[in-house]
Each structure stands twice: as C-alpha cells, then as structure tokens.
C-alpha cells in the first residue's frame, strides 16, 4: 500500500450516474450556452440589416465590397476541417497515434487558412477604396452594418482561433509520448467544440453573406 502512495495517484474517470463522462456533459452545457451567445449576435445583425439599409439617403449595397468567392472558399475549407477533426477522433479511439497526429495537423492547417481568409477579408473591407466598411461607418457615413458584421464574424473567428490553439496543444502533447486512448474522450470534447463552431458558421454564411444576394 504505502509504496503505491509514493506515486501520484492515477486518476480513473469516475463512474457517473448517467454513464456519460463529466467533461462531455460540461461541453454540451457550454455549447448550449454558446448557442445563446451567437443567437444574440445573429439577431442583432438581422434586426439592423433592414433598419439601416441606407447610407446618406442611398441604398446600401454591401455586395459592392463582399467577395463571395473568397468567403465560399473559406467556408468550404472550414467544413473540410471538420472531416479531419472527425478522423482525428476516430483515430485516437483506435489508438492510432500517427494518424491522430496527421489529422490534428490537417484540422489546424485548415482552421488557420480560414482565419487567414478572415483577416484578409477584414483588412480588405476596412481599406476598400471608396467603399470603406469600418466598425462605425460605410463609405464614410455613420452606419451600423460594420458594427454588427465585425463583432459577429469576429466573435466567430475568436472561437476558431481558440479551437486552433486547443488543437495545437493536443498536437504538442502527442509528441510527449503520453498520448493514449485514455485521451480519446478529451479529444472528442475538443472535436465537439470544433464541429459546433463549424455549424455556427454554416448559419452565419447564409444569414450574413448569401442573404445579401437573395433579398
């Protein structure tokens, strides 16, 4: 007995009432809450979209600066990253460390491409000659579109960035030699988060971008 005590106590996942691991319940609760965060942001955007459709008496056509090809591309990239994420989770469940590592890497790269596109888009919009969209104005006139647009998509981008850093943490951890199937559940939680952030984008893309071309 007392020899065993010299080692830090190995921590088994405790048996839970529902059989679902605690961390997973935590993650689901968090995602439920996060729905309300994005719900509030998206509502704000939609409420203002029509109310403030004009600038200086002229109808605001945000399509003048939108680059729908680029955004469609980055949307596709983000969707594809979810595939890598799913594969990473399945690989770690099987204990295939090498494959887990590559799939994590793929998710990170695709997440980073998405972020790069967003950074490009933001700088491009702010400096678009004659069509500057800033936090407080459009074409030099006070306006709300920039406020709701940047804060909404920026919050989403922050989520993606946090996910990327989290994944990088796992990638580094995979080189310490400690990673095993015991970590599968933790990586699965990370995956839940990643897929959720993806799904939110699937909502934002039509609501913020495509809709400008439809109505």
């Amino acid at each position: 007995m007392s020899e065993a005590s010299a080692h830090a106590i190995d921590h088994h996942e405790p048996v839970t009432s529902t059989g679902i691991p605690n961390k997973k319940v935590l993650m689901w609760a968090f995602l439920g809450s996060d729905c309300m965060f994005f719900g509030t942001l998206i509502s704000t955007h939609l409420i203002y979209r029509k109310i403030s459709a004009t600038v200086g008496g002229n109808f605001l056509d945000i399509r003048d600066i939108f680059d729908i090809e680029l955004t469609s591309f980055s949307t596709f990239i983000l969707l594809a990253s979810s595939l890598f994420m799913a594969l990473a989770v399945s690989a770690i469940h099987k204990g295939n460390l090498n494959s887990t590592r590559w799939m994590l890497f793929g998710t990170i790269v695709f997440g980073a491409i998405f972020l790069a596109c967003q950074v490009y888009e933001f700088t491009h919009f702010v400096h678009a000659p004659g069509n500057e969209l800033t936090l407080s104005s459009y074409r030099g006139e006070p306006h709300v579109f920039g406020s709701t647009f940047y804060v909404l998509t920026g919050t989403h981008g922050t989520h993606v960035a946090i996910g990327v850093f989290w994944l990088i943490g796992w990638l580094i951890y995979s080189f310490t030699g400690k990673m095993s199937t015991a970590d599968a559940m933790d990586i699965e939680c990370c995956g839940l988060y990643w897929h959720f952030v993806d799904i939110v984008w699937i909502l934002i893309f039509p609501v913020v971008y495509l809709m400008e071309y439809a109505f």
Binding site: Y48, I51, L135, S136, H143, V144, S147, T148, V151
Partner: peptide
C-alpha cells in the same frame, strides 16, 4: 460586449445619432 465596443471603439449598436437603436 456591444456596449463596450460602442464606448471604446465607436461602433453604433446603441447610438441613435448614427443609426443604432
């Protein structure tokens, strides 16, 4: 957050002079 942006970075979420409600 929106209010913080309004006060710090000049967004117009609640600024009725510039289109906010």
């Amino acid at each position: 957050v929106e209010l913080m942006f309004d006060r710090t970075y000049g967004t117009n979420f609640y600024d009725f002079l510039e289109g906010g409600k």
